Amino acid sequence: MGASEDLIDALVADLRQLRHDVGQPSFRELEIHARKVGNHLPASTASDAVRGRRLPKLTVVIAFVLACRHYAEEFKIPVPAKAREMYSWQEAHEKATLTLTAPLREDQVDALPRADHQPPRPHHGKHFWMPERQRCLYLLIGSGEVPGLGPILAPRDCKFMAAALQNTAPWMSVSMLINPTNQEAHKAVCHTLTERSELVVVHVVGHGFLNESARLSLPLRDSQEDNLLQTTLDLEGLLAQASHHSRERAVILIVDTGYAGSAIPQVPPGLEHWYVLAATGPRGHAYEWGGPAGRGSFTGVLAQLLQDGIPNCPYPMVTVIDLAQAAREIVLRRTSDYGINSQQVVTWSGSESIEALGLAYNRPT
């Protein structure tokens, strides 16, 4: 039996054990209790999930666990600790998923699927420069303290990024939230997106989580495992909000979390100029390497590139695509050095209306 079969069998066995521990509810009962907490879990799907024929989808695993938990709470059955550890279920599913795909070779990385709207490489004479003296907003949200998860270096790397922007893009109006609550984060995002500006950048750093609807969200300081839809920052909804308040401006979403590639949407209606930069592919983890001065995350890499400049850049300013490509090369090198699966690949997408969006002055070494 291979590693993938072992991990799938272990995950399925844990689901069967959880169902047993809460009193062996029928699959029909699980369907009903899943519906009570806002999930869709047909009885046949719940049955298939514990038969072990194949790896169940993550949404099925989460719906199954939450249904068992709700069933136990309603019938006054002691809730097993395993039913409260939603992050551990996601981690187990991720490990099983990764074993189903052979690690990519270096020459295979460029063949990874990209979003449909990949911006073309800038050509000399065709620029979309943002006016330096116009109002440009940059919102940094760093979530390093989340219940049930270990601390990460998000707050520190956000400070590095803010300092780099101050040196290379002094016209940017930078605001930073460190370990905010859900209400604080939503308020800051809404305020930023409704301000009059030529450019808006929303940059989030932290643990990524695929919630019950398989939408990428950012767990925050007050996030609740049994109410993730209401207590996490919906990253996939950010561009939809930006579209509503576009006012003919450019919007950039930078996502430095696990599963960051899941935040790359289809072109938002009404938003003409936009980019999404993601630290990883849709199934990749976001790692911290503990590099020089601690700049070991994707955000730290971006900050270092802005601070040091990008060699051989043909323009006086670093464009969004130049920054993404340079960061991708560094991340690939570091993940390779640490023997990490190449699913952690910086990826990006954007509107075809922008060929070269200047983000900051280039300071080549």
Score class of each variant (00 low, 15 high):
His207Gly: 07
Gly208Ser: 12
Ala185Lys: 10
Met161Cys: 08
Thr181Trp: 04
Glu145Asn: 10
Gln230Gly: 12
Ser197Gly: 09
Ala163Phe: 01
Ala169His: 11
Ile178Ser: 11
Leu153Glu: 12
His203Pro: 09
Arg221Thr: 08
Thr181Gly: 14
Thr192Ala: 13
Pro147Asp: 00
Leu228Lys: 10
Thr168Met: 14
Ala188Asn: 07
Ser143Ile: 03
Cys158Val: 13
Gln166Arg: 14
Asn227Lys: 09
Met172His: 12
Val204Arg: 01
Arg133Asp: 11
His124Pro: 00
Trp171Asn: 05
Leu137Ser: 06
Pro180Glu: 02
Val204Lys: 06
Gln108Thr: 04
Tyr138Phe: 11
Ala163Tyr: 02
Asp226Arg: 08
Val174Ile: 07
Leu139Ile: 02
Leu228Gly: 06
Ser173Arg: 04
His127Ile: 15
Val205Glu: 00
Glu195His: 11
Glu212Pro: 04
Ala169Lys: 07
Thr231Ile: 03
Val201Glu: 06
Ala164Gln: 01
Met161Gly: 06
Leu216Glu: 10
Glu145Gln: 10
Glu225Arg: 09
Leu165Cys: 09
Gly142Gln: 04
Pro180Gly: 05
Val204Pro: 09
Arg196Leu: 07
Ile178Met: 05
Val202Asn: 08
Asn211Ile: 12
Asp107Gly: 01
Val189Met: 03
Asn167Arg: 14
Gln134Ile: 00
Arg215Phe: 09
Glu236Leu: 10
Leu112Ala: 04
Phe209Ala: 14
Ser197Ala: 15
Ile152Lys: 01
Gln183Asp: 12
Val202Leu: 13
Leu233Thr: 10
Asn167Pro: 00
Val146Pro: 00
Phe128Tyr: 02
Thr181Glu: 06
Met172Cys: 13
Pro180Ala: 03
